[in-house]
Structure formats: C-alpha cells, structure tokens
Amino acid sequence: MRLIAENLGGERGGDAVFSGIGFALEQCQALIVTGPNGSGKSTLLRIIAGLLPAAEGSVRIEGVMKVEDGGEAFPSVASACHYLGHQNAMKPALSVAENLRFWRDFNGDGQLGVEEALETVGLGGIGHLPFGYLSTGQRRRAAIARLLVSHRPLWLLDEPTAGLDKAAEARFAGLMARHCADGGMIVAATHLPLGIEGMELRMGEAG
C-alpha cells in the first residue's frame, strides 16, 4: 500500500502557502515534514486527510494492506488515516476511559483495549479521571492513546510531541517505530526531532 502525493499545492485564505509538493510513501516508512512556522505543514496534513481541498495536484492511497494485516482496502485517504491535530478531540467533562471508549466504538476496534492503550502511553490507572483534570502533557498522551485503540495504517501527526516530557517523547518514538514496523505509515509535521528514522520533507524553501 502506498500514499502518493503529486504536485500538491495548498492555500490559506486565498494565498498559496506551498506548491509542487510530491512524495510517495511506502508501507513501513515515515515522512517527517519540517519547516519554519507558517510554511504550511499543518495545511499539508489537512489536505492529505481531505479536510481541506488541494489547490492543485492530488493525494491518493493505492493498494491494499498486506495479507497478514487483514488485506484491507481503503477507498480514500480519510478512511485509512488517524489524524492527530493541535486539538486532542477529547471532551473535558467525560473521563479519559469514556473518551477513548467512544472513539474506539466510533472508529472501530484496534489491537489494544482502552486500558492497555492507556498503560502503553503511561497513563495506567487514571482512566477514571475526567479529561479536563489532566495536565497538558497527559492530555496529549491520552490523545496518542486514541491512535492505538482503533487501527489505521496511516498516522497523520501534527506536532505530536507538543507538551510531552523527555520520557514520554521517547516512549512515543517507540510507538511510532512499532507502528512503522507493523506495516504502517506516518506523516508527521514537527520542528522537534521525533527520534524515528524517516524521509524528510522540508517546506518553506525555494523549490
């Protein structure tokens, strides 16, 4: 399965922020999108997810998952991706476990249950707390746990490590490496080193 972007251009409020972006991402690969603020990293991710229309060019997903992963075919990029944006998509009034259980029911089951996913991101034992009581880093970790409770081959991560401490960053790097090793794909926009191997796409430079 491949994620292919051809000659992508994006605009914000009518002004082009980038153009001519192209890449082909194979299974087990990661693409790290870097660049200064305002270079269009988030816009690129939202265009890939299909949340924003591309000003030019196209993104598509080809092929099926390997047979050992179930041989699943995805009709569109949106159906194949997890999108982790700036916001955590969690309700402060519900407990962490309730939030995750909802996304698991809505998005479909993954390999991990809610409790195991929370253990994996280091939030074991606090699933009963309302999400609103958590600190910034803990909220981000709970949002990362959402990636684990349902299975998607493609992870679109927008500044995934914002607010995480060193240990949590390292743990998250391990999670990303494991996802790639299982045949997944990652597109991450960041300006911090993420600690995983991958192609680099620099935005905001001539060409």
């Binding site: 949340l51 949106a78 991706c81 999108y83 700036h86 955590n88 998509a89 998005n107």
Partner: peptide, 12 residues
C-alpha cells in the same frame, strides 16, 4: 476540541 474533524473524516 477537534472532534468535528474526526467525525468528518469518519465519513467512509
């Protein structure tokens, strides 16, 4: 809180 993006993405 960003949930709407995910609800829209779940369209398929």
């Amino acid at each position: 809180d960003g949930s709407l993006d995910l609800l829209v993405l779940g369209n398929d």
